[in-house]
Design a protein around this nucleic acid. Structure first.
Lengths: 224, 224
DNA sequence: GCCGATCTTGACGAATCCTTGACGCCGGCT
DNA sequence: AGCCGGCGTCAAGGATTCGTCAAGATCGGC
């Protein structure tokens, strides 16, 4: 199970996060201040740390710096401040991602997944198969009729997002944000161009996409 | 079980390493200073030693030199310094690998595996064959048409990384980090130069590499 | 200290990839 | 029927990345 340490001095938020994360299959330990957080980090091998910057005893960035003297575990920072200085400071100290309160739980979970994926062991990534093609997430590879299909980096990123959410509807904003970055939420042109590219390479029957389905006005969906 | 000795004067890090390594199936003993480390090394037969350079009593390189007077156990050095002098000194003293803090536990585990593999029985190393050439990891040789091909040390390291990950995409950063070291993550020039060299020596058909494939913008891939 | 092998560095065309805009099709709506 | 917005398609250009080469720098052995 994936071990996550959550550090926050607000007991309500701490509780909410613990329950939510456990409901999504994470093994959660919590800490309410910087010192106990650093202590907890030495007790178990952790897959990820969620850290609030506003702690009672230590500055949040100090916690990161201290942790970084010996560990490179991914750190996702929570902060009430929107200012870019704090953000820069935290990232410079060694944080991996930054999210400001208030935040949506689904956004937190998405960033968390992205962070964990970046440090995941490729050997145990899933292999997704349809009747037309096979996507090997670990080897970063797509097969069709035994031949491997070469995808450009952008094509792959887009396919990866869809394949990691099988059956689920992926909104245009979600796709654009994960592939091109959060600033490209309006460029739905890209989606059309690259979706056509993917279908040309992966879908056998020309005019009828069976695995990469478009939901008009909303987004796309991958069906295995 | 694989016996590992961890030597560090930071009790937190020591504890974290012991827990992590035990969780990955290693038999761990610890020591907090140079003298007790050397003592511990005489008690059990060890498969590997993880050694922090900054010890309270002895210089880390002295520990290595002392150890090397009677043992050939592989030594992985931890250091807080990024300078190349310490690195050279430690390696000259007889260390086998060098990693600077902060480090990722997964990187440590990977280097540890690599180190243990290097001392593995060469007869058990795999021999990978393609229709054009054969790579013998154990004997460190490459054959083509029955003739063995001379590879320079760097060429070999690069080929080895690729061959040990057949069909898998190997990132540019991964290659650079494993062959030249983690500090060379930007020097993609090297990759181009040495990949050309490898292809000239191994790929028969000139213009169409079939076994050493490039994935533009990402990395390379070895196909048997 | 010399010499050969190996590694580094920079420059250049060639290949690949990304972006952008235009166009036609389809379905919903008035 | 006609308008309109969203989608699929295509191709050109510009930007990035790759392969190639060769000349220095560095290393190691004699």
């Amino acid at each position: 199970m994936t071990a996550v340490l959550v550090v926050d001095d607000d007991p309500h938020l701490l509780r909410a996060l613990r329950i939510t994360l456990q409901a999504h299959g994470y093994d959660v330990t919590t800490a309410a201040d910087g010192h106990s957080a650093l202590l907890a980090a030495t007790q178990h091998p952790l897959a990820l740390v969620i850290l609030d910057l506003g702690l009672p005893d230590l500055d949040g960035t100090s916690v990161i710096r201290e942790l970084r003297t010996w560990s490179r575990v991914p750190v996702l920072v929570l902060s009430a401040r929107h200012g870019s200085e704090d953000k820069v400071e935290a990232l410079d100290a060694g944080a991996d991602d930054y999210i400001t309160k208030p935040f949506g739980l689904d956004e937190l979970l998405a960033r968390l997944r992205a962070l964990l994926r970046r440090t995941a062991d490729p050997d145990q990534e899933p292999v997704v198969t349809t009747d037309a093609f096979t996507v090997d997430l670990g080897k970063r590879r797509v097969l069709r009729d035994g031949q491997d299909i070469r995808l450009t980096p952008t094509e792959w990123k887009m396919l990866e997002v869809l394949v990691r959410n099988p059956e689920k509807l992926v909104t245009q904003q979600q796709l654009l944000s994960e592939v091109w970055g959060p600033a490209y939420a309006k460029e739905t042109n890209y989606l059309r161009v690259y979706m056509a590219q993917l279908r040309r390479k992966l879908e056998p029957g020309a005019a009828t996409p069976r695995h990469l389905v478009t939901e008009a006005g909303i987004g796309y969906r991958f069906l295995p």
